[in-house]
């Protein structure tokens, strides 16, 4: 008990707040964008999960959703956008092209967006149904609550290694 108890409880509360106020940056490139539109639309309504508001500036977003095929030409742009986002940040690969390249295995497509940035949740499907995406979003929220996001784990590692002593971390 003592300070550690309070800091870990505080971290829980912070993560709880984070998971219900995801500000997404949709990096829409391809067909999956059509399903992404449906996700915003009246029927599936992603607003129910506190993640409806798209920010078209990476500096204001903390969730990068990669919607569609990433080509080699697109890679540097994706990487730059990821680097421009403030931490903590999370990423979702929406659709099989963003996860593995799908059935596009050729000279121009990148075999999965994780070749150039870390991904937290992969949603398969070509394109995934909106229900699947909502499921993926809930999985990401669990991950955030448990501190399992890629950036959260890295911060924890750095904290344990003696860096970033001032930060409150689980």
């Amino acid at each position: 008990m003592g300070l550690e108890f309070y800091t870990s409880k505080l971290a829980d509360a912070v993560n709880w707040a984070r998971k219900y106020s995801l500000f997404q940056y949709p990096f829409v490139t391809a067909c999956c964008g059509m399903e992404f539109m449906a996700l915003w639309g009246p029927k599936y309504d992603v607003a129910r999960f506190g993640a409806e508001f798209p920010r078209f500036s990476p500096r204001q977003a903390d969730l990068l959703i990669i919607v569609g095929t990433i080509t080699e030409r697109q890679g540097p742009i994706l990487r730059r956008i990821y680097e421009q986002m403030c931490e903590p940040k999370w990423t979702i690969a929406f659709g099989v092209c963003a996860s593995t390249g799908g059935f596009y295995q050729n000279y121009s497509t990148m075999p999965g967006a994780d070749q150039c940035i870390p991904i937290d949740v992969y949603i398969p499907g070509c394109p995934p149904r909106p229900e699947q995406v909502l499921d993926g979003l809930i999985m990401l929220q669990d991950k955030i609550q448990n501190g399992q996001g890629f950036v959260q784990r890295r911060e924890k590692r750095e904290h344990d290694a003696g860096k970033n002593k001032l930060k409150v971390l689980p």
Partner: peptide, 27 residues
């Protein structure tokens, strides 16, 4: 127009292998 300037070769020629990638960025 479709490929990037750094790309070497002309990919739709029959002697260009389908999966020869020329990555610009990797993690």
């Amino acid at each position: 127009i479709l490929m990037y300037e750094e790309f070497v070769g002309h990919p739709l020629r029959k002697d260009y292998p389908k999966e020869r990638r020329q990555p610009l960025v990797r993690r």
